[in-house]
Amino acid sequence: MYTFKQHSILPGFNLALGFTLLYLSLIVLIPLSAAFIRTAELTWPEFWSTVTTPRVLASYRLTFGASFAAACVNAVFGLLVAWVLVRYHFPGKKLVDALVDLPFALPTAVAGIALTALYAGNGWIGQFLEPLGVKVAFTPLGIFVALTFIGLPFVVRTVQPVLEDIETELEEAAATLGANRWQTFTRIIFPAIFPALMTGFALAFARAIGEYGSVIFIAGNMPMVSEITPLLIVTKLEQYDYAGATALSVVMLVISFILLLIINLLQWWSRRRNSAT
């Protein structure tokens, strides 16, 4: 027997669901579909040549390369931060814990100008790097720094709760069976948090790919060198190349949706892994 909804005596289902669907359609679904419908006006060769010009390809390489590198750094240091926050006590820990979310709360434009000022040749950090021949601001390295800042909370906040839930009994059991600390970590703890770590990595990566505000200030925005794909979309838009901008944004959307799917699968895996223990 087909039933859309199970019976309930609570009122308001039709109203609530109806409003939810209407709102989502008007705000999210119809505008998003516009990108796909407008792109469909292009022929496939037109579309393909638009999204594979050398300048566009260079922007993909930069966007994905820098995002991947930033997500990797965040995976390592995010795990470290989560570990330290869960396992150790030190003065100011509460403050540090609260400030980890700063990249979520700080407007990206503010982050962008602050990082640029710091890493410029005369900035607080840049002045030490410049003599070593390391240029950060206005280079791809700067993009990597901005994306690392933006993605920092993701890994910490996905790994932290899982780490908190690991029972000390598991580790004690490993210890009674003769495992040393390193063995306990690699064989017991790490496998338990691995799905969460991957989820955090994917979230940071996905966020970095679409990031705009914090990057454009520090990037230098040189075509072929330090121009990210979102910036290229804006540039095309400012040149009234709507078809080009839309085609590129469809590529970005498709990649985002694939990443969203992967993230959902990872979260499902993570939940299953944690409920099984």
């Binding site: 990108a35 407008r38 990206t108 790919i209 705009y212 979102p230 944004s249 970005m252 959307l253 993230i263």
Partner: peptide
Amino acid sequence: LPFSVSPVVSGLIYVL
């Protein structure tokens, strides 16, 4: 869904 859409694209779709 909006979380996974690039901010630039979020603006663009309204222009479209």
